[in-house]
């Protein structure tokens, strides 16, 4: 018997009597304003947020926040300040110097501030992590109440990569002092249109 069969037969022999799966619920309809809740959650986890009227405003907002833009990458046509083309890059190591990434998020979650990004859409999976600063753009109508609703909407294509990003990267590993900017992005700005 190989290892796989040994493990599977031991599990089969030792497992208890079958119990049913519980019925899943969405636990939704609990908050009055999903948008307000989203903004509140995002602020709590160290992110900031702006509501924008026109997509073109992104350029102006980013320029006003960063005196020196450095390398800017995006997966959105409207972001004209971008100066590197993600599609041209073949090796993710070349993204090392990216300072700002402006990425479109598919979905956001009000209870915790998270934004769902899909690997295929962002072209390089490394980009939201390797960039120094992250800006995510989401649509107001794509904010859902909680994780149950979020998973009911996500369609996992396979193979694929997908990630919920909730705030800038952080650590409290040194004496429980919260430090923003562990390995990933040092700041997160979410633009809601």
């Amino acid at each position: 018997m190989n290892q796989r069969e040994q493990i599977l037969s031991a599990v089969k022999k030792n497992k208890p009597q079958s119990t049913p799966l519980p019925e899943m619920k969405l636990f939704d309809g609990q908050c009055d304003s999903i948008l307000d809740k989203y903004v509140e959650s995002l602020n709590k986890i160290g992110g900031t947020c702006k509501i924008i009227d026109r997509t073109e405003d992104i350029n102006m907002i980013v320029k006003s926040q960063f005196s020196d833009l450095g390398q800017v990458a995006t997966n959105m046509q409207e972001v004209l300040i971008a100066n590197i083309d993600l599609k041209e890059i073949t090796d993710p190591h070349q993204l090392e110097q990216v300072n700002i990434a402006v990425l479109h998020g598919e979905l956001a979650v009000a209870e915790n501030g998270a934004v769902w990004l899909e690997g295929k859409q962002i072209i390089h999976q490394a980009i939201p992590f390797i960039t120094q600063h992250l800006i995510l753009v989401i649509e107001r109508e794509n904010i859902v109440e909680n994780m149950h609703v979020a998973y009911s909407k996500i369609n996992i294509e396979r193979p694929s990569y997908g990630v919920f990003i909730a705030g800038p990267s952080k650590t409290a590993d040194i004496e429980q002092s919260l430090v923003i900017g562990a390995h990933g992005s040092r700041s997160l700005l979410v633009l809601i249109r």
Binding site: S41, K44, I45, G162, I165
Partner: peptide, 16 residues
């Protein structure tokens, strides 16, 4: 830790 979710929840369904 009392956070509502970790900063990153990654779903890997295959190699890049």
């Amino acid at each position: 830790t009392g956070q509502p979710i970790t900063a990153f929840t990654s779903h890997y369904h295959g190699p890049r």
